[in-house]
Simulated assay, not measured.
Amino acid sequence: MQLINEITKKNMGRKSIKDTRKPEIITAFYKVAKKMGYANTSIAKVAKVMNINPSLIIHYFSTKEDLKEALIDYLLERYLLIFKIDHEKEYGLDEFHEIIDRLFSKKWNKLFDDGLFYDFYAESFRNKKIKRKYITILDSLRSALTIVLTKLNNQKLLQLPDPAHTADLIFNFLDGAYFYLSLVEDKTMIEKRLSQYKEEIYVLLRLTK
């Protein structure tokens, strides 16, 4: 009986194969879709890259549609990594400048692929489930920035009549900027535009760098 209890405890503390295998499949699917495009990606191609039988993927994701939903969650979770906010922290102007620098940088591209992000974004106009996922993520980003702007307001470092509205304006500006810059191939031009856009945000907030 004691031996059974010890084995049970070990198994409870060990990650199941399911817990580790699903993220591996999603990551492989992302890499294949990033290279070939979502439309040209199949479960068979992902299985080939992973050197496993397609039936193993189907065991975890019954259809390509199921795998697509998991991939969208993966992309949006990485999107959230851009903007982490500590709700307990008191933000000053130095920290705020760091946030703006992070938002207006091409480091975003290291987190997720623009092509896939906009593929699924376009599909959100036809798929309510995907639309809800995008709205949830985008609203959470705006909410996080609102918290920071409100903290700066409370410290009299900013004088914003409506921090939530300002946060919305910044992200609307950011969304448009990144859609345009995702089409630009000249890296020098991208950096120049990002710098200009960032300065516009400081003008909006009546701040100087």
Rank of each mutant, 00 (worst) to 15 (best):
M1H: 08
N5M: 08
I7T: 04
K9F: 04
K10N: 03
N11P: 02
R14A: 10
K15W: 00
K15D: 04
S16W: 00
I17P: 04
I17M: 14
T20C: 02
I26M: 07
I26Q: 09
F29E: 10
Y30I: 02
Y30H: 12
K31V: 00
V32P: 05
A33E: 08
K34W: 01
K35F: 03
K35Q: 09
G37T: 00
Y38E: 13
Y38K: 14
A44C: 07
K45Y: 06
A47F: 01
N53I: 05
S55Y: 08
H59W: 08
T63K: 05
D66C: 08
L67Q: 09
L67I: 04
E69S: 07
A70Q: 14
Y74D: 11
L75R: 04
R78K: 15
R78S: 12
Y79P: 03
L81Q: 14
L81T: 14
F83P: 00
Y91D: 09
E95W: 00
H97A: 10
L103Q: 00
F104P: 06
N109C: 05
N109S: 12
K110P: 01
D113M: 05
D114R: 09
G115M: 08
G115H: 07
L116V: 13
L116P: 10
Y118G: 07
D119I: 02
F120A: 07
Y121P: 02
Y121M: 15
A122R: 08
A122K: 12
N127Q: 02
K128C: 04
K129M: 01
I130N: 01
K133M: 15
T136I: 10
T136D: 12
I137G: 01
L138H: 11
S143L: 08
L145W: 07
T146D: 09
T150C: 00
L152D: 03
K156P: 03
Q159V: 06
L160R: 06
P161W: 06
T166V: 14
T166M: 14
T166S: 10
A167N: 04
L169P: 01
I170Q: 02
F171T: 01
G176I: 04
Y178S: 11
Y178W: 09
V184S: 05
T188F: 11
T188C: 09
T188N: 15
I190G: 03
S195I: 08
Q196A: 12
Y197H: 04
K198C: 09
E199H: 07
I201L: 13
Y202K: 13
R206M: 08
R206F: 01
R206A: 09
K209W: 02
